[in-house]
Write a protein that binds this DNA or RNA. Sequence first.
DNA 1: ACATATACCTCGGTCATCTATGTCTATTAT
DNA 2: ATAATAGACATAGATGACCGAGGTATATGT
Lengths: 124, 124
Amino acid sequence: MKIEKSLLSGSTPMLVLALLKDGDKYGYEMIEELDRRSDHTFELKEGTLYPLLHALEKERFVTSYAKQTAGGRERKYYSLTSKGLEQLAYKEKEWRHFTTAVDAVLGFAVAEGNMSLAPAPATI
Amino acid sequence: MKIEKSLLSGSTPMLVLALLKDGDKYGYEMIEELDRRSDHTFELKEGTLYPLLHALEKERFVTSYAKQTAGGRERKYYSLTSKGLEQLAYKEKEWRHFTTAVDAVLGFAVAEGNMSLAPAPATI
DNA sequence: ACATATACCTCGGTCATCTATGTCTATTAT
DNA sequence: ATAATAGACATAGATGACCGAGGTATATGT
């Protein structure tokens, strides 16, 4: 199934950080891995990923280093920092909150406790 | 919890259609209803909603009519068309697919059958 | 009478993603 | 040997979604 691209908007940084949680990766590899893990739902474009990686590095969520392949080709590997791991945890929490809220609007039953509802105010 | 606004991007039309499934509503009412149902997660702005409603009407997903309040004020009510109902069903399906794919990338266990995986091709 | 809430609307800015394009190197096909 | 393809990085400009800010007008509360 093809997903309207704007749906993905906003969750891309989280997905990239999630990929790096399982080990250092280079850009091109992330695109393939994301495509594979999502069963072809997310076909991230290079024009999206590379600028995003630069932004994540600027914010110190990831660091990068160059590494040679056996063939002599150079790759730029990215590594998750502890700050990036914290950010991932935050983004995952935000993601849970978001999907719970959408499901609530769509009218799906929500398991109690999920929405962290404030206790109902006393009606005088 | 505050949600980064770009997360919502793309799912807004679905949410609006979902609201109208429960009966005709006017714009201002939808904003309040969305805020209420989502426990203040979605605070849709007028600058977002009104142009969106016009677009939905243009695509024949909704129709509109004017109606007076007891006080004499005029409101513009929107009503879901059968085409809009179909669109909502499609968008909900897309939404399920999307969240399943994100969860797969995040590494959460996925209930079997959800991802509609093609049977593994025979490896010769 | 004045402020606030209700109710509609539009314009322009911001930001995320994609399209298109470019570069360079390694591998595969002819 | 040479051409074509795939791998790997990068950026510029277009598109599109959402919001901020502003505008108009009526009803209600003080």
